Amino acid sequence: MLSIGEFSKICEVSTKTLRYYEEIGLIRPDEINPENGYRYYSIGQLQKMLFINRLKSYHFSLEEIRAVLELEEDQSEEKLYSALHRKRRELQERLHALEYTLNQMSNDILNLEKGIPMMSYLDKIEVQLVETRPMNILYMREMLSRDDYAAGYGNYFGRLYEKIAAEKLTLLGTPMTIYHSPEYNPAGNDTEFAIPIKEPVKGTRDLPGGLCAKAVLKGSYLELTSLYAKLREWVENEGYTLVKSPYEVYVTDPNQAAGPEEMVTEVYFPIKKK
């Protein structure tokens, strides 16, 4: 048996962390001395602790690790395989975001060296006044947290596409997201996922057409906040007011794009004159 101190030293996990892991049921000592409360771990538990450390190094949360550890033996390999694939996709997305940020920083540095203001890119965003047509949309509405946004929208649109395929519905456009919350809340935001279709079946609704301020982004979704800021400024300066929730239309599928620079997204602000 190994004392908690020796177990801690071998696995490079503090005794405080081991006690916390015991508290949340992640890994418990094999033996606790009832007289003095000393904790002891078995040699066999070293492998379990190394497994936990390995998943932590892959950026699994403690909740995700516990879910993996609680799997039945006959399911564990298959579920672990799926979990690793999912986490790898998440890390690849973060890596791409970091690469994009580094390129953006390099461009800002070059512009500053040339005497070009860092925020001058906002002046290049073009805003158009357009009249949109009504649409019949198949939709689902969810409260999404910041972590949900980071994980991406594929799961939600996937469920809509599954229904379209199962019921042989007719596509009339590309996916869109409508943001209904009046303010940003990291804990949860009212978000509607939609796909325009022909048939008015259960789970569809009318999206009214009307006057909109529109801007187009060709690039990473990370730049969308710049479009929202530019559109809001344009609406104010031109004497309009926002009348419905803004929405995004994803003209290109991110999975089909060669890189962020190939992705095209349209942002619409439904408006009317003040």
Rank of each mutant, 00 (worst) to 15 (best):
E78V: 11
P34H: 11
Q75F: 09
A165M: 12
E31V: 08
Y161P: 03
P208D: 06
M140A: 02
E248G: 02
G210N: 08
R232C: 06
V251E: 13
T170I: 03
L80R: 07
K214Y: 08
K198M: 14
A165N: 13
T15I: 05
R133F: 13
L98H: 11
R28I: 06
P186I: 08
T265M: 03
R28F: 00
T265H: 04
S245R: 00
L50D: 12
Y221E: 12
L46K: 06
Q128Y: 10
V130S: 06
L80E: 05
I32R: 10
K48N: 04
E6W: 00
E90A: 11
T191P: 04
E266F: 12
Y121V: 11
S120T: 05
E35R: 01
K163L: 10
Q92P: 03
G173R: 04
P117D: 01
M140S: 08
L62Y: 04
Y38N: 06
R141N: 05
L169P: 09
L112R: 14
E70Q: 14
E64V: 02
K79H: 06
K274P: 07
L224A: 04
E261M: 07
L50W: 13
N155W: 08
E223W: 11
L211E: 08
Y240N: 02
N237Q: 14
R232Y: 09
R133H: 14
S181A: 05
E90P: 04
I116K: 13
L144C: 02
D74N: 13
A165E: 14
N53A: 09
K218W: 03
S61T: 15
N53L: 06
T132W: 05
L26A: 10
Y149F: 15
S14K: 00
L242R: 08
I4W: 04
K79M: 15
E113F: 01
L217W: 05
